[in-house]
Design a protein around this nucleic acid. Sequence first.
DNA 1: GATATTAAAGACTCTCGTTATCTATAATAT
DNA 2: ATATTATAGATAACGAGAGTCTTTAATATC
Lengths: 138, 138
Amino acid sequence: MKYSNATNYALHTMVYLIHLPQGNTVGVQELAKIQKLSPTYLSKILTKLTKAGLIESTPGVKGGYKISRFQNEVTFYDVIKAIEGDTNLFDCSIHHEGCLIEETMRQAEENMKKELQAKLLIDIVKKAEAERSVETNQ
Amino acid sequence: MKYSNATNYALHTMVYLIHLPQGNTVGVQELAKIQKLSPTYLSKILTKLTKAGLIESTPGVKGGYKISRFQNEVTFYDVIKAIEGDTNLFDCSIHHEGCLIEETMRQAEENMKKELQAKLLIDIVKKAEAERSVETNQ
DNA sequence: GATATTAAAGACTCTCGTTATCTATAATAT
DNA sequence: ATATTATAGATAACGAGAGTCTTTAATATC
């Protein structure tokens, strides 16, 4: 019962892309080097993010990936959903409907999802920048 | 990213055991038949619940499983923890400490855990009985 | 004490999703 | 045209979960 490594890499890549100067594109080679991953593997993850509309890709020379226009609105849940899909943590294995156990589990999960839907990636970036600025001023 | 089938079976078994008249013991054969599982497989799950102190087991003739003394206090999270272990949904794959992504994910997960720690299994049993009683009176 | 019954433990197999690699194809800038 | 970069597909390696079988330990009954 864990989020996949892919989700891990996706979140880190998104944060990295958001923290870049607006409009900058980065190739998968560079992104892979940062996280010490093989480019082909990371590219699968990036394609999922692209299809979800979270980043934009352009092939060819000077191509690469950049954050989509909606960077200020991207939430943790957006990224998770793009990678893991929109599944439930718990499905009742026995009852076909009206399982009270499932109801309870779903409700707890739903609240976690809502919390992750309320967390913006850009807040992480801002927080990291704020911390770094404090360090520099010391 | 799903809770295991074992957790599913464990929750259902716990609810079944709680709903029994106090002190009754049931063998794994009967419990397995109800959920259409092999006895040996279910027995692994029951052993975990026993080690966690949620149920009590007695071998031998007239032996079997029964809910432990603390049946009124058993929470959803107790059962999940007994089966899945006490792990985190998310571990940062890159940073060794102070990962802001991890912090955010952990906090959301922590709140879900707290919610599941507040949900008593016995409430499910009571609710089911209440619903059944309504049906009977119609 | 012998026997039947039941839980616990260990070894083992099977399956499936994740992880990852390799190759080929499509798109783009120079 | 050529170099560069993303996309897609096939495929392999791996590990966790699911499940079975067999043996051992504990308990009640006779």
